[in-house]
Design a protein around this nucleic acid. Structure first.
Lengths: 289, 289
DNA sequence: CCCCGTGTGAAACATCTGTTACAAGCAGTG
DNA sequence: CACTGCTTGTAACAGATGTTTCACACGGGG
């Protein structure tokens, strides 16, 4: 991310269509080639684009100039910027233009995108990685500390609430600097840190994880496929698809993985857990409905 | 476009993730930069990518070689090919090699049950009911109060965090008797109560909802198909499948519905929201990474 | 018929790019 | 402490890239 993601007001494609009138025949060929495989065609070299359009390099350059760019490089920059804007934060791509005018019904879009994200994430989840996560979390000789970013911390809390039923030594840390710092004091070789960090990645969360590792802890990291900076320090990496109904990200797949882990911990814990759950039952079911 | 758009079996992104283990720290920086702004970052020059990653050009080249490409140009070709190949959305980008062969029973069961629960829940969700929920929640003349049971309250919190970005007058109530009682004092005709109550139903939550209705509030109730006792008092009823990998319940479908509502509220709010989000952006992006 | 404006490509050029070779820095080991 | 192996950046290099120049081809008007 970073850089100047100043979204240009008009896209290259729009420019192309607008100038269509005063282009020479050969230049039109270039424009067509450009739009036919947009934006990939524009990201090759001038010679490459010229050859796919069936014209010479100078023709491409002249078109570029006609569009108002100082050079081919600038056009490419613009193309890349458009590309980046598609997967940036909610605001950048907020307009939700609806390419073909008609906006698909809310529910239908959610069905498609979220449903797919969940199934795909579960399908692509590495079983070995999942087992390692379960092992680190189920181990009763380790304490488990959970936290996450401003939004994803609710996932941490969700997991924490389940885990508290399943074993002792579970701590959820609110997304707060002071809380996390204090907790770090007790982090050591026997600590499992479960961290949720999705785009945009949270510096404080990353720093928490890094410091935890420095103190000997192991990190189970939930993140998206673009990997939080903390990924390099993580012992176990659990990635999920986050592309939801535009312009939003979805954390539903992440929750699916969380629940998978809960089940894994249950199964790893054996009969001792059964007694624990029964005991909990007696506590909560004091007044039967 | 011409040529053969033979989709490579594995994407660059996948390669990157696969090689994560044997990359040096600096190379990891490059990998992150690449994935963080995929695929645009990889379509600049080597020097450009190096500078956004904060390393030198040779490091980039070494990473490229490690991935198995004969040169940077080849990698870019691949990137462009991926770009051209995708027509059905960003998710398609990851065609999924699929861990062929054995999948852990644990994972397989979660895939089946959770995946099905999500798709089924979304499929069976009544669009009209969803719209009514969105209307009640998006209405700026109403305040929104959210709460839930011991486990499901994290869903309430999740929704609350998003809503706070989208509009004023959002309050999340912890699953605590005293907190809820205090909040009830301010509940009136202008209140929308968003309540999560799944088996086993929580008396305190139900009582909170009922009292809210008595005071003139309207209730949007998230519950399972067996219906919380509060259902009879609810204005809008959103039910989801909860049958997960036995013996557990899953609240993943509920989160899918929550996210659908967030999207609905965004779309119902129009351009005013855009300014609000931009303003928020400026707040959070004070220290660029 | 010649002239002239326009559109276009071949070739030459200067620059920038990717790449390679090498040396400095650093951590761990004997 | 020297040595070894590994990372990483600096500097030099060869080749490719974008750009410019110029000449040719074409077509319509004097």
């Amino acid at each position: 991310m970073a850089a100047i993601t100043t979204r240009p007001r008009t896209t290259v494609a729009e420019l192309l269509r607008a100038c269509r009138a005063d282009l020479t025949p050969s230049e039109l060929l270039v424009a067509q080639a450009l739009l036919a495989d947009y934006p990939a065609a524009g990201l090759q070299t001038v010679a490459g684009l010229a050859s796919t359009a069936g014209v010479s390099a100078p023709t491409v350059v002249r078109l570029v100039a006609k569009l108002g760019f100082p050079g081919f490089a600038t056009l490419q920059q613009r193309l890349r910027a458009e590309l980046s804007a598609r997967s940036a934060g909610p605001v950048e791509l907020y307009p939700e233009p609806g390419p073909d005018g008609a906006v698909t019904p809310l529910l239908r879009r959610c069905q498609r995108t979220i449903g797919r994200a969940v199934t795909q994430s579960l399908r692509e989840l590495d079983p070995v990685e999942l087992d390692r996560a379960v092992a680190l979390i189920a181990d009763r000789d380790r304490e488990v500390v959970l936290t996450g970013g401003r939004v994803s911390s609710t996932h941490a809390e969700y997991l924490a609430r389940y885990l508290s039923l399943l074993r002792p030594g579970v701590r959820y840390l609110q997304p707060d600097r002071a809380v996390r710092d204090a907790a770090l004091l007790d982090v050591g070789r026997r600590s499992t840190l479960v961290v949720f960090d999705y785009r945009r990645y949270d510096d404080e969360v990353v720093e928490f994880g890094r410091e935890g590792v420095r103190r000997g802890g192991k990190v189970v990291l939930f993140t998206d496929r673009y990997l939080s900076p903390l990924a390099s320090s993580a012992t176990v990496l659990l990635t999920t698809v986050v592309e939801g109904p535009r312009p939003f990200l979805t954390l539903t797949p992440a929750l699916a993985v969380v629940e998978s882990i809960v089940l894994g911990v249950v199964e790893a814990s054996g009969p001792r857990l059964r007694r624990r759950l029964e005991s909990f039952d007696r506590l909560t079911a004091r007044e039967p409905r």
